[in-house]
């Protein structure tokens, strides 16, 4: 599978990465060569094989839904890059017309 520049731009947009023109070319080439390597999986017949998503054997682990002591709010809020009155502040979401 060979990826072109338009596909790389689409992926960068989905992944929210602001990649440069130079990187678009580099990633197109590198991801294509990795995918080419991965294509060998098609040699294996996987008809009727159940996908394996995790290996611990755990199924539907439940816990009681009760209120518990959690992390210190002060410590968590201290990590916020921009805080105002204990609210997390970010730049505007919509452009004004």
């Amino acid at each position: 599978m060979k990826l072109d520049k338009a596909q790389i731009e689409h992926l960068a947009n989905l992944a929210k990465l602001d990649i440069s023109e130079e990187e678009k070319e580099k990633y197109a080439e590198q991801l294509s060569s990795i995918l080419e390597y991965v294509d060998k999986l098609n040699e294996i017949d996987t008809k009727n094989i159940e996908p394996l998503s995790q290996v611990s054997g755990a199924i539907d682990v439940l816990r009681p839904d009760v209120v518990k002591q959690c992390f210190s709010q002060e410590k968590v809020l201290a990590e916020v890059p921009d805080l105002e009155k204990r609210q997390i502040k970010v730049k505007k979401v919509f452009e004004h017309k």
Binding site: L11, V38, L41
Partner: peptide, 30 residues
């Protein structure tokens, strides 16, 4: 890190999920 995010986004994206992600999970079981 960005390369893997891009690659992972690709194999999970619409139209490629079955060919890559699901296929790999099946081979994982084997």
């Amino acid at each position: 890190v960005r390369r893997r995010i891009m690659l992972g986004t690709y194999v999970l994206s619409s139209g490629y999920y079955d060919a890559y992600y699901k296929k790999a999970q099946q081979v994982r079981r084997l």
